[in-house]
Design a protein around this nucleic acid. Sequence first.
DNA 1: GCGTGATGTTGAA
DNA 2: TCAACCTCACGCC
Length: 285
Amino acid sequence: MPEGNVIHHQARRLTRAFGQQVVEVDSPQGRFATGASVVNGQRFVDAQAFGKHLFIAFAGPAVAEQHAAKRRSGDADNWVHVHLGLFGKWRIGKGLPPAERGLIRMRVIGETHYAELRGPTACEVINFAERDALLARIGPDPIRRDADPQRAWQRVQRSKAPIASLLMDQRVFAGVGNIYRAEVLFRHNISPFRPGCELTWADFAAIWADLVDLMRQGTKRGRIDTVRTEHRPEAMGRDPRQDRHGGEVYVYRRAQRECFLCGEEIQLMDLQGRKLYWCPGCQVA
DNA sequence: GCGTGATGTTGAA
DNA sequence: TCAACCTCACGCC
């Protein structure tokens, strides 16, 4: 159930575990058997995340011989594209994989580690053109150094859709999910219902910069914390065990509880099939 | 043990 | 707008 920070975190772990190794790939569950047979025995170059999409670059013998000196993602022959959807999970461990538990779509075995993938929405072998087409479909990802926020700003500025919808739209902001959208709007006192075209450049720039900070921090920690130091439980005298969902948050999954800052009741509604949380006291317009 | 819901996306109606 | 997909943890018997 990951937002972009988790995918980037996993990409780093996978690269650390398998980078540049010849690996064994199979599909115990069988649904990725054909794809697995394509990359089995190839070199796992690296894993990279773009928003919530993960691409594992594989290089076959031809590339290995021609470009022995070059060891970058661009040298790959093919990629395994993985999207976890709502339920997908990676398990990465040392040594040999345990006796199979549950349905494993894809399994990677390297020199020192193994990885098991369960329940992804997408797990497929794609070529350069298909990867390009996929990347063209998604917006800039605040976690990536090569992201161009102007692309997101152009869309926000021209849209009458509420900013809460735009933040979840992967064509606008890649990698943002339900927690970051709720929390970043709270942190900037912006109503989730304000149309994109009514955001100023300053509003947008502040949101973007904050997403960069929060999501990069979330990548390092592998979890989401959005509460500022001065509002943390220790600083405000709250019970630190209350209202936690992995990390510390202001509004996500806090419906009907009191806002830490203004005391109003956190609201919840369904917006396009996803739960939207906000504080009516702090996020007025 | 059972039912529910979850940090998501797609494609048909 | 809605159902379908896929898995697992958690709350409530």
